[in-house]
Design a protein around this nucleic acid. Structure first.
Lengths: 151, 151
DNA sequence: TTCATTTTAATTGTGTACAATCTATTTGTG
DNA sequence: CACAAATAGATTGTACACAATTAAAATGAA
């Protein structure tokens, strides 16, 4: 028997866009683990280091805007990376509210060990180059057009 | 100055496919919160209920395969939903290892309250219908072709 | 200048998410 | 049958992720 609700039910997992997004992100991040284990980094620590490899130095606030993370998440991650001596944390001189994150030489050196991670991971996403390109473009379109959190 | 590393650096956040996937999933789920707060459900509880609205009854193992979650995550979620009386948990009669999850009438009734969630959320993903269609297809392609976790 | 407002991180509490381990049960092989 | 191997959930420990709150510092309007 088929009721009208079965015909097109928006509350079916298979009819949602959010679920494959959620599952896909989670499963891809999970497949990073063996590569990141070699560097003794978690995924969150890894993307933090990627920003630092590029920027060398920035405030927690700016890092949070780039990674879509708040201080509640970043503070412990940054303390961990400070312990590993990949970065330094110090209050900004011109604005004592801000905290300056600075990459260290040891943090810079880590990049050469991470150089093979992206290629290893790329094999997990089995798409044609133009499909990957399209996926990339659509994800950034969604991300860039996101409405504010409440309202 | 532009060094060869800047030309195409795979270790730049902007050159990775995983990061927008991760950020996008996270931000979309975050925007579910106001809608799910009205139902007093978390996102994980919500997708669990979606499976139950469709299947009525299944084992924890099968639920985990559908949601890409293991018992470490599901056990506390299912206990919470049991507390709320949306489902029952009982050992399978024919195989005492298995745990049968069953939706309750109260769980069924919740569906009518959730009916407006997907439409509210759809407004968060600002894509043309055919773009959303493409994104959906590509995400499932990645998900279906995922290599095993180790190896 | 003064004091309310805003901004920036840190802290607290809840809820995933997952690897590793443990326990009970079932299955498969001799 | 007997026992090793496999299976299903639960438990443990670590690490996010985020809302809400707190505390310190900077800003701005009267």
């Amino acid at each position: 028997m088929m009721t009208s609700a079965d015909y097109y039910d928006p509350l079916k997992l298979g009819n949602q866009l959010c679920f494959p997004l959620y599952a896909c992100a989670k499963e891809i991040v999970r497949r990073y683990k063996p590569y990141l284990d070699e560097l003794d980094l978690t995924y969150t620590q890894y993307i933090t280091m990627m920003v630092l490899w590029e920027k060398k130095s920035l405030r927690v606030k700016e890092l949070g805007e780039i990674l879509y993370l708040d201080s509640g998440t970043l503070t412990p991650v940054l303390k961990k990376l400070e312990q590993k001596q990949y970065l330094t944390r110090q209050r900004s001189a011109e604005d004592e509210r801000g905290l300056d994150i600075h990459i260290t030489p040891k943090g810079e050196a880590l990049k050469s060990k991470a150089i093979n991670v992206p290629a290893g991971m790329a094999k997990c996403i089995r798409l044609e180059p133009e499909e990957a390109q399209t996926l990339y473009r659509l994800l950034y379109k969604v991300l860039d057009d996101l409405p504010p959190v409440t309202g």
